[in-house]
Nucleic acid binder design. Sequence first.
DNA 1: TATGAATGAGAGTTCATTCAT
DNA 2: AATGAATGAACTCTCATTCAT
Lengths: 199, 199, 199, 199
Amino acid sequence: MPRPKKTEREQILSETRHSLLRAAIEEFARFGYGGAKVDRISQTAGFAKGTIYNYFPSKRDLMLAVIEHISTLHMEYVAEQVRQEEDPTCRLERFFEAGFGFVSDHLPQSQVMVNNLYGPDPQFREAMYRAYLPMFALVGSEIIAEGVQQGIFRQVDPQSTAALLMTIYLGTASQVSDEGKPWQRANQVADFVLNGLRR
Amino acid sequence: MPRPKKTEREQILSETRHSLLRAAIEEFARFGYGGAKVDRISQTAGFAKGTIYNYFPSKRDLMLAVIEHISTLHMEYVAEQVRQEEDPTCRLERFFEAGFGFVSDHLPQSQVMVNNLYGPDPQFREAMYRAYLPMFALVGSEIIAEGVQQGIFRQVDPQSTAALLMTIYLGTASQVSDEGKPWQRANQVADFVLNGLRR
Amino acid sequence: MPRPKKTEREQILSETRHSLLRAAIEEFARFGYGGAKVDRISQTAGFAKGTIYNYFPSKRDLMLAVIEHISTLHMEYVAEQVRQEEDPTCRLERFFEAGFGFVSDHLPQSQVMVNNLYGPDPQFREAMYRAYLPMFALVGSEIIAEGVQQGIFRQVDPQSTAALLMTIYLGTASQVSDEGKPWQRANQVADFVLNGLRR
Amino acid sequence: MPRPKKTEREQILSETRHSLLRAAIEEFARFGYGGAKVDRISQTAGFAKGTIYNYFPSKRDLMLAVIEHISTLHMEYVAEQVRQEEDPTCRLERFFEAGFGFVSDHLPQSQVMVNNLYGPDPQFREAMYRAYLPMFALVGSEIIAEGVQQGIFRQVDPQSTAALLMTIYLGTASQVSDEGKPWQRANQVADFVLNGLRR
DNA sequence: TATGAATGAGAGTTCATTCAT
DNA sequence: AATGAATGAACTCTCATTCAT
């Protein structure tokens, strides 16, 4: 029965990696990529300076791993809620609700996400776009295209409208006060958008 | 008659300052605040390393001056065009046109603006907000409140709607491809927004 | 009857030690002492990082063990061949042949040997000298002193001439091209030296 | 008269570079490339940590500059003395004298030279060979080929014999005791070599 | 005012070594 | 005996800033 042992070790490994990722997200959120210190991340996670390099080959790779991590989490969070509805209108409302919910539940994650999306580093932006393709697809095909087909929405191009919606969502959701409260409310934005979409 | 001399000197000083600001904008746009090098800015402007410190006390202050500079430019650019119209609807269309025009005409400036607005540095974000208050006011009182009063727009709160519009504008306008073309078109966005606003 | 078991265990231990030594020689030869990585040595030998510390207390001690190992091998190789001859002239020829043969048969070993001999580390140089005393003695008493006594060689001081010969041997033999071919040939060097020694 | 000023500045620059090179040679001689610390070199030269990077882009480049520096010095030292003689025999004697003299006058330089020549780093070895081509040429054409042509030396190949002589010189000269005294004496080695070369 | 050599705090990264399993 | 995650001292190199010229 050597399996349990291996699993146990993998468990620890995975937990360490997770702590490091969590600490990294916090650090990147507070200080941005340039201001983040690798040492502090490791120490925040409860490890020594060098430990982080057993898991991520460099600071950049760490950020890329963080992007991957966040996008997966974000997509799961949003998709799960959106798909509970059938009606495109409700789905869109849910999309904004879930999105705003994600932001207030995962403030540092959102901060990092937005920093990278609107930040100056092309590699990170690129990584963000790739990581968010699934959510783009969700909005484009499972909400907009669906609504157009059912005659609920105007005849708009699903692709570019999805981009517009994502932009609105990200732009509004990311504008939070220092205490983390968004300046807009989800239903307010959803209403506004629905008004623009409906026939 | 010492005045003219002083003015002339101020002129020269001002020109040097301007070259430095221009170079700084380019540098910040390409590399972000953290990646920007003070040396390179000075050299790009045609001066030696140290010269920049005769005009700006530190890298941070340089960025703050850049923010001030850009926002003034931006506001002038937009306000001038918006005020050529009387009708709130037209003004709103003009707002998006002018805004998108500014972005494509001043790509590095826009890049820096967006980086700071969505970036991790609270001091820079704060400076951005303060610098953009006039534009907020323009949209809030000279477009939205006006439209509401004239019965063209629904009864919305001018303040928060202005914030929403600014967000949409910034979010959409800042999403440019690598060649600097925005992903959305000004009139498309304006249409969308007008649909959401009209009674 | 606990003895055989212990012998067997020693056998295994010895084999592990040997693999480690072999891997260390390769590593030191390729990267020098400073550039060598303990991890890589252990892994090349087929073990995990830490294993090497069960056999050698530190990187330095590992190098000292390597020096010991190589010098013994080297001496055996050379002495065995030299002593097959009786005549000092032939012995000297054999000495260069065997020496050059050792280098081409044991390139990494030679590399390490020369690195240490001409290298900056006093402890390693010292260890090399001690380890090569037997070979010094072989050349000095069994070749040169013998030849002088038999009247074949000029009246030279065996000690310092042995040192000169060793130097010539090491210097010439260590100059190998990237493919491991020595730039000089054994008999060429031997001829040259014999010319210098003969009455 | 703006020249003197520029010259003065260049003078200072050159002096700083020289101090750094001198300190680097000392450091490399004592600790080898791997053991040398860049900070210590800068400090030994009387400057702050970072100063050295205003003159050499990296530690490796510093070593390459050192090699260049030493080889030039060495060649000048030897060539000047060798060319004072006309007769190939005397030239060869002078070559060893000058060579041994250089070693005892410039112990750290010699140490660095030999470390690199027999060391594990291919780039440094390569640089050494290239840097020593002029001395190779000096020995090959101005001593050996000359002696062969005049019928003083045996019919040997100048190229490979030059290599052999260089090897003997370097090998013997580099073997110094801890106080810096060579184990062989120049004329002893020269005699030995002349015996091997003469017809 | 412009210069650029000098500074030195501080960053990312490496890697020999330890030790609980 | 073998493992490999964790450690942290120590290294190279960067770059904002200073200041004498």
